[in-house]
């Protein structure tokens, strides 16, 4: 159905995600989401639901560093920039200083080059603008070997 250039479709069945549409089971990759805004966490939680990953959440950079110091290990870290207590730049730096080599994908709503540079200097692997979408996440997961071919 088209209207003013927009296209509509009727969604009847569940969303399917092809090769990613697996139930979370043994061997699920572990993702740490570091994000202070609850709405954003709820959306990411829903985005990853069919992606066969196990998601843990930290509300700020300090909570993330504490989880890692406590022995938690992850296959990927999604790190927001601006957060209370310890921000994303500093948390990334601290995580790297602990010798952790887990890929860190930095996230920010402001696509400023300075943010990107600071994150990369702190040890992030890449920088992605927010908000995340399912397609963006699938691409990120693929790049870091979190897919299931």
């Amino acid at each position: 159905m088209a209207l003013g250039g927009a296209r509509f479709r009727y969604i009847i069945s569940s969303n399917t995600l092809g090769r990613f549409g697996l139930a979370m089971g043994e061997g699920a990759k572990r993702i740490l989401l570091v994000e202070d805004t609850e709405v954003n966490r709820v959306v990411v939680r829903r985005l990853v639901r069919e992606l066969n990953v196990s998601l843990e959440e930290a509300e700020n950079g300090q909570a993330a560093v504490d989880l890692i110091r406590g022995g938690r290990t992850y296959d990927l870290i999604l790190m927001d920039k601006e957060m209370p207590v310890v921000d994303g730049h500093e948390a990334t730096r601290q995580i790297r200083s602990l010798g952790v080599t887990t890929p860190i994908v930095a996230l920010s709503g402001d696509s400023l080059e300075s943010d990107r540079d600071l994150f990369l200097q702190a040890g992030a692997d890449e920088f992605q603008p927010k908000p995340l979408t399912r397609d963006k996440l699938i691409n990120i997961f693929s790049r870091y070997g979190l897919d299931y071919d």
Partner: peptide, 23 residues
């Protein structure tokens, strides 16, 4: 992004968009 959220709504989450909006 609103369309993105709508596409995340399914039988197992029939009120996902309105719940996120309420939040």
């Amino acid at each position: 992004q609103f369309t993105e959220l709508q596409h995340l709504q399914d039988e197992s989450n029939p009120d996902f968009v309105s719940e996120v909006a309420s939040l």
